[in-house]
């Protein structure tokens, strides 16, 4: 029984090993930052389709939402180039709603916008398919095939949609809008696709309220998934079983 040759004992093997370790270190240091960043941000190239592995969602903590604060609304208007006017024919993608329980008198203030339903009635009723849901749960209007029939506005339980009643100017190139089409909150899809938060969430954080938590509901490690697991939350008009992407805490 002779003892097998140990690699260290061979001077030739030692040189090869040093080379391979050094090569691996160089290659690793070149690739690692990209791999690490991809892991953290889950970024995807612009030409890659979104998948249903992600479901974007939001938790609104109404106990942190200030009655007089409209920072989320202002941020939405700025980001999406909305006029900010509040006439009956003006677009409002997000609005603050004040509610008061008729029995107990309890009051809450909360933002209301497209709830990005899993089973959106607006998508069901749209004759051309312009109202559509992306694989990652974001409900959008395809501006190219919306004929402006407004049936989606009749069907939306949240009054989340607006119709563009007049010609528009000074638009954000990333957020195309147009007279005669229906529009609504997009979760700031242009920002989300760049791994940024929606403008309303960013504004709420900046104001120090932190009432809005946004993220991937399918990722158990995300803030929003942890928050909806830790706290009791509810869907608005949960009786309709639409499985909304936006949930509310404290009502």
């Amino acid at each position: 029984m002779s003892e097998p040759n140990r690699p260290e004992s061979n001077p030739e093997n030692g040189g090869r090993r040093t080379f391979m370790v050094a090569g691996a270190a160089v290659a690793g240091s070149a690739i690692a930052p990209g791999v690490m960043l991809y892991g953290i941000a889950q970024a995807k190239p612009a030409d890659e389709a979104v998948t249903d592995k992600t479901r974007w969602g939001m938790l609104v903590d109404t106990t942190k939402c200030n009655s007089g604060c409209t920072d989320c609304v202002t941020a939405c208007n700025t980001e999406n180039a909305l006029s900010g006017k509040t006439g009956p024919q003006d677009s409002q993608w997000i609005r603050k709603v004040e509610i008061k329980n008729l029995q107990t008198g309890a009051q809450n203030s909360l933002p209301m916008m497209c709830q990005h339903c899993e089973n959106p009635p607006c998508v069901d009723v749209c004759p051309t398919g312009a109202s559509m849901k992306r694989a990652d749960g974001i409900v959008l209007v395809d501006r190219h095939i919306c004929i402006g029939c407004r049936y989606c506005m009749m069907a939306c339980p949240y009054k989340a949609r607006s119709f563009v009643h007049e010609p528009l100017t000074e638009q954000n190139p990333e957020v195309p809008r147009g007279k005669g089409c229906v529009e609504s909150c997009t979760f700031c899809v242009q920002r989300v696709d760049r791994d940024e938060k929606p403008a309303c969430v960013e504004a709420c954080d900046k104001a120090g309220h932190k009432a809005l938590v946004f993220g991937d509901l399918n990722n158990p490690e995300s803030d929003v998934a942890k928050a909806v697991k830790a706290h009791a939350s509810t869907e608005v008009r949960g009786d309709l079983r639409l499985n909304t992407g936006v949930r509310y805490q404290g009502i």
Binding site: T86, P88, R95, K96, V97, I99, K100, L102, M112
Partner: peptide, 9 residues
């Protein structure tokens, strides 16, 4: 609930 908003809720 009673509701009020800038969007005529």
């Amino acid at each position: 609930y009673a509701e009020t908003s800038s969007f005529f809720d």
